[in-house]
């Protein structure tokens, strides 16, 4: 990766963004003092261009665009190791949630598309069926990501073991579930929730 110079000034420090992240995650971005325990224990750090402690530092410095544009936030597995070990009680896993939400709302400026696609399909399954429909999730993911043969060899094996359900009944509470989705959307339109 080409090294870019980072200019820091009062203007580049977007404290408004930090506050938004803190409201969503209910934890303090400013408390991080860079001990690095989060990155040391992170199982996904090797897959990230900015390991968790650097994500925190970039946020503190107002460089959130670099964080949202990268893959790191989508490679967090939500394993909660960082939140468990932080000596300053920064709930980093919740900060990752907040960052993904803000990136998602901005329609994903991130380069990582597969994880976002999987999330989208998962949520679509909830609003169309009420429960996960694993078979459909995997099939639609393969089609939409253009990986038609991904895990093809597993299919027959899982089917033979009764692990793939071909059909999914719609949940009886589906209308109620869809109402939850639409009420949240409405609250956001009115500015009652982030």
């Amino acid at each position: 990766m080409k090294k870019k110079k980072m200019l820091l000034s009062q203007e580049t420090m977007d404290t408004g963004f930090i506050r938004k992240v803190e409201t969503l995650s209910d934890t303090s971005v400013r408390s991080c003092f860079q001990c690095g325990k989060c990155s040391a224990g992170c199982p996904m750090a090797t897959f990230m261009e900015h390991p968790p402690n650097r994500v925190m530092r970039l946020l503190q410095l107002g460089q959130w665009q670099r964080v949202l544009a990268g893959r790191s936030i989508w490679y967090c597995a939500s394993c909660e190791t960082c939140s468990t070990r932080c000596p300053n009680k920064v709930h980093l896993a919740s900060i990752m949630d907040a960052l993904r939400k803000l990136s998602w709302d901005a329609e994903g400026p991130s380069k990582e598309s597969y994880v976002q696609l999987a999330n989208k399909l998962f949520l679509q399954n909830i609003s169309s069926y009420g429960r996960q429909y694993e078979m459909r999730l995997a099939a639609v993911f393969n089609v939409k990501s253009g990986q038609f043969l991904k895990d093809m060899m597993l299919g027959p094996k899982l089917f033979a073991k009764g692990k793939l359900k071909m059909f999914q009944r719609k949940n009886k509470n589906l209308t109620e579930i869809q109402k939850i989705f639409s009420r949240i959307e409405e609250m956001r339109k009115k500015g009652e929730a982030l």
Partner: peptide, 25 residues
């Protein structure tokens, strides 16, 4: 009776309010 999906990781990953609401219901 008629429990539904808790939202699992994908819901809280991108929309905590949705995740909390599905679980609360």
């Amino acid at each position: 009776p008629d429990w539904f999906c808790c939202g699992a990781t994908p819901a809280h990953n991108v929309d905590e309010l949705l995740s909390l609401s599905l679980c609360a219901k």
